[in-house]
Computed example of a mutant assay.
Amino acid sequence: MTEMNMCRTVSLFEYVAEEMISQEKYFCELDSGLGDGDHGVTISRGFRAAQQILQQPQETLEKLFQNVGSAMMSSMGGAIGPIYALLFQGFAQAVAGKEKIDLSAAADMFEKGASEVSIGADVQEGQKTMFDALAPAVRVLKQSAKEGKSLSEGFLAARKAAERGAEDTVDMMAKKGRARFLREKSIGHKDAGAASMAALFVSVSDFLVREEERSENRNEEN
């Protein structure tokens, strides 16, 4: 698959939402080690709100991401709500005027989203946050786009980078959020935000690989 139109993009994020909601218990278990154990509930709440937007007709890709971000902001609350709103705000800015998303556009989306998160949340790599999964995945997406890879190839590589980034948070001392008060005691726990961000990349990758396989099967049948 080289690009996605509005219909395919909506299908992608519907799949992402379902997958993120399905991992509510896992995210809560991770968060219980450093926070108050409700990260999964918050993530589920946000993606259920996103599902409502995805079921409604949208004029443009820009509007789609603006509306998803706003819905997540209003439904999630806490610190993570504004972060996901910033992420989707970045997506919207990156696709302004576009009708389709190829790997280059997707890389721009995540790069702009990451920039909005970094500035808006005052966060950077190495602080044991979701940014430790997001930033390396963005770098891989940008490189994959330069190399002319397909959407599925690019997100498969980004998925691996995000998962490695999330795993790396185990050895980090938290410097942001409530977990920073634990100081050295925060070492040895995977950050729930990084884990859920990695899960987002995993679900995007799974969807794209599945769609590519379906397309290949249809071509073989014809």
Rank of each mutant, 00 (worst) to 15 (best):
L156D: 13
A85S: 11
V138K: 04
G148W: 12
F91A: 02
T169F: 03
S152R: 08
D171A: 14
A79R: 10
G113I: 05
T169N: 04
G120R: 05
A133C: 01
K98D: 12
E125H: 08
A145R: 04
G78T: 05
A105N: 09
P136R: 00
G165I: 07
A114D: 07
G154F: 01
S150A: 08
F155L: 13
L141Y: 10
M130D: 04
L86A: 12
A162K: 04
A162G: 02
F110S: 00
E167S: 14
G165W: 08
E99Q: 13
K128T: 10
D122L: 12
S115I: 11
Y84R: 07
V170I: 13
F88E: 05
D122K: 15
T169S: 13
A105Q: 10
A161C: 03
D108K: 14
Q89G: 14
S150C: 09
S104W: 12
Q124H: 11
S104R: 15
A79T: 12
G120P: 02
K160P: 01
L134H: 09
E167C: 09
K142P: 04
V123I: 15
E116T: 05
M109G: 08
E163N: 09
L103V: 02
D108L: 10
A166F: 07
K149F: 02
A107D: 01
G148V: 01
D168A: 15
K142D: 06
P136E: 05
E167V: 05
E125V: 14
Q124I: 10
I101L: 10
R164C: 07
Y84D: 07
G148A: 03
I101T: 02
S115W: 12
A94H: 09
P136I: 00
V140R: 03
E167L: 13
D108C: 13
V170R: 15
Y84P: 02
K100Y: 06
F155G: 05
S118Q: 14
D168I: 08
G90F: 06
K149P: 03
V95M: 10
A135K: 15
I119G: 08
I119E: 15
G113D: 09
M172G: 01
R139L: 12
Q93G: 10
I119S: 14
Q127D: 15
A105V: 13
A158K: 05
A161K: 07
D132Q: 11
F91Y: 13
G113K: 03
Q89F: 07
P82D: 01
A92R: 09
E116C: 14
R159T: 02
A166P: 07
A114E: 04
A106H: 05
S118P: 11
I119A: 13
